[in-house]
Design a protein around this nucleic acid. Sequence first.
DNA 1: CAAGCACTTTACGTTAACGTAAACCTCGTC
DNA 2: GACGAGGTTTACGTTAACGTAAAGTGCTTG
Lengths: 147, 147
Amino acid sequence: MSRTSSQAPEASSDALPRQQRTYSIGELAKMFEVTPRTIRFYEQEGLLAPSRQGQKRIYREKDRVRLKLTLRGKRLGFSLAEIREVVMMYDAMPDGNARQLKRLLEILKEKRADLEQQLEDIRLMRMEIDDVDQRAREVLRHLDQED
Amino acid sequence: MSRTSSQAPEASSDALPRQQRTYSIGELAKMFEVTPRTIRFYEQEGLLAPSRQGQKRIYREKDRVRLKLTLRGKRLGFSLAEIREVVMMYDAMPDGNARQLKRLLEILKEKRADLEQQLEDIRLMRMEIDDVDQRAREVLRHLDQED
DNA sequence: CAAGCACTTTACGTTAACGTAAACCTCGTC
DNA sequence: GACGAGGTTTACGTTAACGTAAAGTGCTTG
């Protein structure tokens, strides 16, 4: 697992309201500590849809948020397909028909269940780590005393 | 599929204390809902080391616990390499030298940090899921009223 | 003894999620 | 006008974590 990624740093110099700012692919990449390749790949997988200015990709606030959510999902071990499933349905919501919406609710329920399972897993793993930690410190203590 | 209840094949199979029980690869596989292939693969990757009885693998309680821990780690998105790192150092602990032990403590610290990050990620993702859920239900409510 | 399991090894196949390389634009600037 | 720093597409390469298929071993059961 990768290191903890910080909260998105505030857009620096300009007094532009976030909603109007745009980002280049390189900016986003540095911001989230991923490569441009990764960002293009996510687009190819249907997770991002930046507009273009000539050939160049232009990312807006919405895209930045999506990328943030995507990376968070990844840290939690979700596949890109799973993430897309939620993200796309979220976008299709406003004009969604009832069946689509109910399907969405189901998916959300599943995801929530996954998260609960993870919480339990984390709890248990924490305990085990603490245990190993304790033992290791104890062995160390004995080694120190031997000298 | 159905378990034909024949006469008890092996005596005292139930009364065995867990510590003495052994498992076949198939038993473990069903127990954890993975394939035998997966278990063999984990062995090949140095995460399990069952003894043999002739050609067949014999799993003891220790192996079962290891498998459990491994699968939990996987659910949390850790790679097999990461899991092995901890598990193997744990085994090397009793006769470990100081440098090894300190390295282990560092690794544990990292893992703990990962878990904390995950807790935060889960918290945020929960909120977002709740939000999407809310919106979806609201849209549904309106659709129902239209009829 | 043939058949059926459960197990074994060997080895090639597959998928997700990118990495990496090549070859090409398009600026601003020295 | 050469150049370097960004960006672009296309396409092949790589790694982790298994899946899958083939061919063999050993037991027990009708």
